[in-house]
Design a binder for these strands. Structure first.
Lengths: 240, 240
DNA sequence: GGCCGTCTGTGCGCCAGCGCCCATTGCAAC
DNA sequence: GTTGCAATGGGCGCTGGCGCACAGACGGCC
């Protein structure tokens, strides 16, 4: 996608809206910056807005009583942050943090709910996206149980890059460790392995993918499952 | 709850329906047996019905390519099996298996969808339940990452018992191991520890809880989070 | 009452990831 | 350029859970 003008259609959910709905909704959206590390929602706190990431990535992560954390899902330009607003719960026990800086389209919670109850295309899109989010969470649970850190690192990298439509990522190993819920040193080792295999280069927070097929071969099935399910639920053609 | 007559209100979602909706919906439900091990849905296969467990428990579990498995959520009389029908995806990449035999109320998928699109109380209940299910999945992911098998065993036991409104469970260690995605021997050890601590008795597939507060103290925070979130989203009073 | 299959308990060696500590290396700000 | 700090890379010993193999123990069935 061209970097050019910001436009709501950079977000795939918004892009999938029919013209009539888009005309009604787009004027309600606000284009806002998403600085790295910014906390959009805190666990248990009432949300006022939802966010449709355009050029940013948001992590949904769970912070435990002892401070340990784990990411449960990644949201980028394929989705929306704040599903609990239309699901009815208003809050969730998780935190939403900007993982990769950029921009997003912000929408007032009440406006979203009004639109949702019209039971039109937006409702359909939101529900289908929510299902894909559930798949991602479920897969994260499975992956945490069964797969090696190397595999999880690759999965995480691929999922993140897909959501940026890029093959570069700015992210320290420390942050990745927080996301994956592992030691920083563990990420150092995993990243080192992948780098030695010639699949990426990693220099002080800058990851570049050299061999994407190689990465996909190295990761576990979890990545493919999540991707396939998203494609199935929300087919997106870039040219739309 | 009295064991007496089967009645849809044994399921908390159905019980929460206002009289008018209940009168419309209940006649469409079919009271069906749920034999142990019965597979309600297979990964990727179109679903024809949803199930409201009354006296049974259903595990949503993920089976990997190599045969390893992991449970991502437990559904009992507090919920419904088959959320992807109204979420729009029709299928999920997971499998639904009866984990504790009993009965459930079955509802035709199309009837459910018709009701859902009325945007009445049933829709609200279903969406809120789905959110609680997401919490459970997320918590499972976190728990898999950070907590010991002992803690996970306690969490699993408590979640299961809550969904049976009982303090006894019929379940071999082999099955529990499949659910938790660990070795059978691991479960033997965890169960042994908990039994030696005087919190349960375990005899050839029959688990009885002796000291419930003790169990709750021994498990991780994950149990409380899931329970609290369910109570918040779907408050249920037994006398309703 | 005896047999058999299922379920449970235990004992190895093994390894991935943890917690802790410190060495090195770039980038950036002055 | 120098200095300072964030970021990365490695080296310990430790432990929880794995894979495997086998020994009891209970329960149902004939």
């Amino acid at each position: 996608m061209a970097q050019s003008e910001p436009h709501p259609r950079q977000n795939h959910l918004l892009a999938a809206l029919p013209a009539a709905d888009a005309e009604r909704i787009f004027p309600q959206l606000e284009y806002v910056p998403m600085p790295l590390g910014h906390v959009l929602y805190e666990s248990g706190i009432q949300m006022r807005h939802v966010y449709f990431p355009a050029t940013s990535i948001v992590s949904l992560l769970y912070v435990m009583e002892d401070g340990a954390s784990a990411e449960i899902a990644i949201v980028g330009n394929e989705g929306i942050v704040g599903v609990s607003l239309f699901m009815g719960g208003e809050t969730t026990p998780s935190r939403a943090v900007v993982q990769s800086a950029g921009h997003a389209y912000r929408w007032a919670g009440q406006a979203l709910k009004n639109e949702f109850y019209l039971a039109g295309p937006m409702q359909r899109l939101l529900l289908r996206y929510t299902q894909s989010l559930m798949t991602q969470m479920a897969q994260t649970a499975v992956c945490n149980r069964h797969h090696t850190l190397d595999q999880q690192f690759c999965r995480w990298l691929l999922l993140s890059l897909d959501r940026l439509s890029s093959n570069e990522l700015v992210m320290t190993q420390e942050l990745i460790a927080n996301m994956l819920g592992v030691r920083r040193e563990g990420v150092t080792e995993a990243a080192g392995n992948v780098q030695r295999a010639g699949l990426i280069t990693y220099q002080r927070g800058h990851i570049s993918v050299i061999d994407r097929p190689g990465l996909e071969a190295r990761t576990c099935e979890c990545y493919a499952v999540v991707k396939k399910e998203l494609d199935r639920l929300l087919p997106y053609s870039d040219g739309l």
